[in-house]
Each structure stands twice: as structure tokens, then as C-alpha cells.
Nucleic acid binder design. Structure first.
Lengths: 348, 348
DNA sequence: CTGTTAGCGCATTCAG
DNA sequence: CTGAATGCGCTAACAG
């Protein structure tokens, strides 16, 4: 690096004071250590020399690196989860921390995971965020993460050693179905995913509970399930819409399946939203905003989870032990409804 | 951090040798400094104690932090550009380096940009990657980046001080149009973006050059342009397809516009690919893979650009000055065609 | 109000 | 083949 580093020492001699004084002044130590006069001299000298502290040395000395590690599993790969990184990064910056990212593949085994954590630890990170996209949301903390300030994203620790955040699938589904009912619908189909993951069950629970609260009997024939791509949504929606007693609205497991439902409706000459209202899930802008009509859907609070995780991690790092209590139970984050144009009152 | 750090000193006393010896052995200093016997003792002790070097201290001493910074402008936000991060991260890991990420907004001004770079520099990063998504691809290196090993992604430095990579838009367009011509098409429409960005011009150049090479006259009426969302693509494609002499194939500026073209075709009862072939650009899986039929498109080499950038940065950091020469001219990366189901021979 | 000093954990001369 | 000593840049007692 050609521009040779200017250190505290250079500032000191330039200002004609000792390094101690410089250190105190630049770190804004509470007690008015130096006179206004010297403060100015030092600050001016620092600015003139283009001084910036060497955070490595600082960290070595203070035992705080000011860095936090984000171990993300496959997350940098799935587009709509990038917002976790974004939220974490912005929250970290707000706390004066830097984010160090390691992305591992979904099939990472325990050992490679431990290696990744070790790498972060060698860098002396002050805490670690572990974001997963897994089938089972319950995980076990890797052994070398035990005792280290850590927060899980999209997962919960089996042993309750670290707090975690997850999207509140159920309330998200509730928001979606409620919107449909408020528009006047009573025959609402649910195009679910057939896999055994928390989202599947949570969203179904939300769907059922809202129906029940509105006195609408649960009709099993209105619930179908398939894989979660557009084609699967299409295949399973087609027969559902090709019935004399077809639903007037559809709640789809995700935006991709909703995309398939759009196609099924088009083929059957059913217009959206006049003859069929649709709500999706995930708020994948690329799809939701570009479908016609634009899809009303439920957003996953990835950004917010990233922020929450960092804020919580910072409190734990600062020794607020009460936050450890959060480890007992998962924290759920709201999934807000994003209203676009795919809902209308049912046709008479 | 509860698990108290074990240092080189602990290993030394556990193995009954000096810290010097431990340092040499663990760093695999070339010359066989120690006897096989002591090597084993030291290594065993290190493993037993779960020793890991303190990279902060190491960096302070060696003047190399082993970290590189990635300053990304709005990049963590645009889904299909996340692959830059992924590529950079994996390449960095392969070099034993860690990636520190800072995401700034698109409207970042020069000052905030300098601040971000300063933050990275304070962390003593060994080099910086600057990824932008800009209208003008020519940028000026922020002053505090001059002299620091740096590589640009998706941009080129006006002053030629740092090398940069960009996607080869023209060759991507050529691949797309060539595929169409090889399928037998001669009336090929181009649904372009109306903005004045490199992609607009590069793709048009590619389109025109391939036509010319195949002796197909350029027909201006087959080229339309609009904003780049699905709705815009739809609006502009509809009249194009509603002509008696409509094109038998369409090359779209991006997958979103192609999505709009699909809708236009559907409304006109033109089936894809039998009566109309379509190629997109960007390879946004969410759209391309979920359209029906799945969209053949051109992929942006984001991952590869991330890898190239890190590899190049590493060489520069190691003082391979010949790599600085790369700064003179931008490096272009191929945009490969991703074949799906939207191309067929034209109907007779 | 300000300066001296002793490490933080490690790599590296330079002597054995 | 191995060890003692020095300092990377900075903070924090502890003196003045």
C-alpha cells in the first residue's frame, strides 16, 4: 500500500504532544482530559495528516475487534434472502461494527461449519450471526460456537443457548387470508407446498384459523399441495379452477406457485382479479411486481431479521445477560401484506 | 468471549519449547527449522489446546491483514448481482482471505464513498473491490483509493489507475441472436431498453452485427424500445406482434421485458415457441425458469466477475505490476447463452 | 492538564 | 536445531 500509514505517533509529534494525549482526545474519553487548545491542535494535526486509527492494533489492545461474522448457509445464493445481509450490514454500521461474511453451501457438514466459525474466531470477531435456510428449523450450535455471543437467523437452537429469529409464517398467512375475506370472499382455495417444512404448517394453520374465526367451514377439497415452482402451482390449480364450485380466491404458498395459478386462470379464461383474487407469499418483486395484474403478496421480513439479529447480538456482546433469556423461545417477526392489484370483490 | 483464547505462548509451554519455535513450526517456515520430534510435539499441543492464531496480532505484525474489502453499490440489493459477492467470497476463501462487505446506496455521493473506503482502510484491508451498478460505466477512483490495490467490477476507471471487469454485452447479444438464426429465423425483432446505458448500445450492436454477418438486412421497424419492466415489454411488443409481417422471433433486452412479450403473445393467441421464439437477457432464474415455456436467455457473468476481480486483486497485492497494465483497457467477460425451451424453428 | 510505560499476540532478526 | 529480545500501533494504568 503506497500511501504510508500515518499513526498516532505522527499526529502526536505534529501537534507537539504525547501519544497518550492524542489517543484520549481522538477517542473522546469522557473526562475533559485536555484543554480546548490542545484538542484543537491535535484534531487539526490528525485531519491534516489524514490520520485514521489502525483498527487492528486497536482491537489487539482492547480485545474488541469491532467485527461481527455472518455465517450464511446458501443465503447469498437465494435472492430474496439477500436482504438479511443488507439488514445486518446496515445495523452493524449503525453500531460502528463491520460485517465479515462467509457463505457456505447448504450441504455443509458439521466439520466445514466448524471450520468457518474457527476462521471467524481467528479474526477475533466479537460475535457471530448464523443464518440458515434449512428444512428443520431446529439446529444444534456447533461446539466452537458455544460460549461465543451468537444469534441465529431463520433457525432456533435446540439447546436454547442462543436466541434466534424466524418469520411468523402463521400471522403472514392470516394477513393474506384476512385480506381476502375482507374483500368478500368465502370460498378461498389454498395452494400449499407439499414439503414438510415450518412454512407449510404455519401457513396452513394461519389459513385455517382465519376461516374459523369468520365462521367459514374448512373445506378440504379447496386445499391442494405440490412442489413450489410455477409449473407445480399451475398443475395443481388447473383442476381446482375447472370446477363448477371453484373458489373465488386463492392463497398461494409462494409467488412462484401464484405465477402458475395466473397461467391456469388465463387458460380457463378466468380474469384476475375480477373473477379470481390471488394472494401469494414471499414478495419476490421480480415476479410479484411484473405479473399482470401485479400480485398482492406477503413479505418475508428478511431485512428486519438481519437488523434484529445484529441489535440482539450487540446487546449480548455488551453483557446484557437478560438477552440470553431470549434463547428460550424463538422470536417471531411479522410478515406484512404487500398490497398490489390481484384482489377484488368476488363476482356475484 | 468466555472461551479464553489460547495463544502461541500457551502452546509453547505445553510443548516445552519457546514461542519462536512454535511460530516457525505452525507457519511452516520453509527451512526445516525444528526436528521432526519437536514438530510433532508442538502440533499435538496446538491441536490439544485448540489453538488458532490471532489474525489481528498477526496482521499487525506482518502488515497484512488478510482481508479484502468489497464496496458494493446497491449491489446487495439487486438480486441477480448477489453472485458477485458469492464469487468474490469463494475466490477470497481460496486465497485464504476474508471478505469484508460494505453496501452503500446507489445515490452515494463522493464523500460517503470516501468514508466507506476509509472505514475499510482503517481495518487495514489489503485491497479493495469496488462494485458499482451505474448508468455510466466510467468512474473516477475516489482519492483515497488511489495507490491502494483496487479492482473495479462492472465499471472502468477513467484514469486507468485500476483494472476493471464488465460483462461483454455485445457478445451476449450475439449469442442470443445467433441461436435464433441457427434455428432458422430471419425476421427477428429486438425489444430494447430505451435508456442510455452501455447494455443498450452493446446489445444493439451485437444484434446488428449478427444480422449483417448472415446477410439479413437491418429492419428498423423490428426494433422497439421502452422501459425495462414487464409491462413496458408488453406494451411495446403487442403492436409489433399484431402486424401481418410480424417477426417470427424476438430478442428481448431482459427477462422482465420478455415476460411482457409472453403476455402479449398469449393475448394474440400466438404460441411460444411454435409461432414465436423468444430469447431474453439476464438469466433471472425466478422468471426465466418459471415462465412457460421456460425462457432461453443470456446469463450475466456476475459470479465469474467476482472471481476474476479477487484473483486480479490478489496478484496486484502481491506486487505483480504487470497486472496494473490491465488498467488500460477493460476486461470483458463472456455472457453465455442459457438454453431452455423458448426457441423453435419458425412456422412455415 | 499531560507524559511514561507496559503490554495485547505474534513474526522476526540475531545469537547461541 | 533452538531461544531471547524487539516492535507492529494502540490503550490504559499510573505518575507527575
Amino acid at each position: 500500500m503506497i500511501p504510508k500509514r500515518v499513526g498516532i505517533k505522527d499526529v502526536a509529534s505534529a501537534a507537539g504532544v504525547s501519544v497518550t494525549t492524542v489517543s484520549h482526545i481522538l477517542n473522546a474519553t469522557p473526562n475533559t482530559r485536555a484543554s480546548e487548545e490542545t484538542r484543537r491542535r491535535v484534531k487539526d494535526a490528525a485531519r491534516a495528516l489524514g490520520y485514521g486509527p489502525n483498527r487492528l492494533a486497536q482491537g489487539l489492545r482492547t480485545q474488541r475487534s469491532g467485527m461481527i461474522g455472518l455465517l450464511s448457509e446458501e443465503i447469498a445464493t437465494t435472492p430474496h434472502a439477500v436482504r438479511i445481509i443488507l439488514g445486518a450490514q446496515e445495523a452493524a454500521r449503525a453500531h460502528g461494527l463491520s460485517l465479515m461474511i462467509i457463505n457456505s453451501t447448504h450441504d455443509a457438514n458439521d466439520e466445514s461449519r466448524r471450520d468457518d466459525i474457527a476462521a471467524l474466531l481467528e479474526r477475533q470477531v466479537d460475535g457471530i450471526l448464523w443464518a440458515t435456510i434449512m428444512y428443520h428449523r431446529e439446529v444444534s450450535l456447533p461446539s466452537n460456537l458455544v460460549g461465543v455471543p451468537a444469534v441465529l437467523i431463520d433457525a432456533r437452537d435446540r439447546a436454547g443457548l442462543a436466541p434466534g429469529v424466524e418469520p411468523d409464517e402463521e400471522s403472514g398467512a392470516r394477513a393474506a387470508v384476512t385480506a381476502l375475506i375482507q374483500a368478500g370472499h368465502r370460498r378461498i382455495g389454498f395452494v400449499n407446498y407439499h414439503g414438510d417444512i415450518p412454512a407449510t404448517h404455519g401457513r396452513l394453520r394461519g389459513y385455517r384459523s382465519v376461516l374459523a374465526e369468520h365462521g367459514i367451514p374448512f373445506d378440504e377439497s379447496l386445499v391442494v399441495a405440490a412442489d413450489y415452482e410455477a409449473l407445480d402451482g399451475y398443475a395443481v390449480t388447473l383442476p381446482l379452477l375447472d370446477r363448477p364450485d371453484r373458489p373465488t380466491a386463492l392463497f398461494c404458498f409462494n409467488d412462484r406457485m401464484a405465477m402458475g395459478a395466473y397461467r391456469a386462470a388465463a387458460e380457463l379464461h378466468i380474469t384476475i382479479p375480477e373473477e379470481l383474487s390471488i394472494v401469494g407469499f414471499d414478495n419476490q418483486e421480480l415476479i410479484a411486481a411484473n405479473l399482470f395484474p401485479a400480485l398482492t403478496t406477503v413479505a418475508l421480513p428478511h431485512y428486519e431479521m438481519g437488523v434484529w439479529a445484529v441489535d440482539t447480538l450487540v446487546r449480548i456482546m455488551n453483557g446484557h445477560e437478560e438477552d440470553r433469556l431470549l434463547s428460550d423461545h424463538p422470536t417471531f417477526m411479522e410478515c406484512p401484506l404487500v398490497i398490489r392489484q390481484s384482489i377484488a370483490a368476488p363476482a356475484l
